[in-house]
Amino acid sequence: MSSEQISSLFQLMLEHLPPTLKLFGFTLLYAIPLGMIVALLKMCRIKPVSWLTNLYILIMRGTPLLLQIIVVYYSVPILKLSPNCPEGLRGILDKVDIQSGGYMFRMILIAFVLNYAAYFSEIFRGGIESIPKGQYEAAGALGFNKLQTFFRIILPQVVKRVIPASSNEIITLVKDTSLAYAMGYMEIMYIAKKQMSFYSSLVPLFMAGLFYFAFATLLTLLFAFIEKKLNYYK
């Protein structure tokens, strides 16, 4: 490939970076709070709630993300056509416009959020359970109520403890966004594959790899910085 071709290829990839970033950002935005809620539900003393949450986590972690994306994506059109679909559900599904431009992104995002919330929840649960019982007892003896204890005493300590495991998960997400390519979502992988065929060259794939690599490395540095910042106490 000529240097002009490479330069225009780079330009093209840069133009397709925002969809990748959008999927990455929105997944984190929803999956992290949802993961915290799922973690608390799994630790819930009401057994059925804990079991159901555990079943959800088992399914999300036990099946491929790609399969989940495909299931979520096609669930709406297939259920709409199914004669067995309950009327109540059909009413809701009919409101979903599968022709609209945002439909694809929303469905992919739902699959990513559900999957990543399950992984985050296990990280958060581990973090919460690693806080010594004495912290709760000290807070209780000082008159803090449950909400104050969680948000002022427990959560800040959990954040520090879950940063290393979470950063691992977040870096995996950078690369997992490429799975959206399978649904025709126009992110970096999608354009790389297309340009590969167009030029009959591996350079576009190599370049896509560099994009992911740079992004992941940037995050690695960022998390190393955050970890260092949070090292003011042990």
């Binding site: 010594p132 004495g134 912290q135 007892e137 000290a138 807070a139 209780g140 003896a141 000082l142 008159g143 109520n145 005493i153 800040p156 300590q157 520090k160 106490y233 042990k234």
Partner: peptide
Amino acid sequence: RDIRLKTGLVFQNFNLFPH
């Protein structure tokens, strides 16, 4: 809760808030 505020407790392992 009112009673808790009238009493103080010092633990064997201090249980200070490390953060």
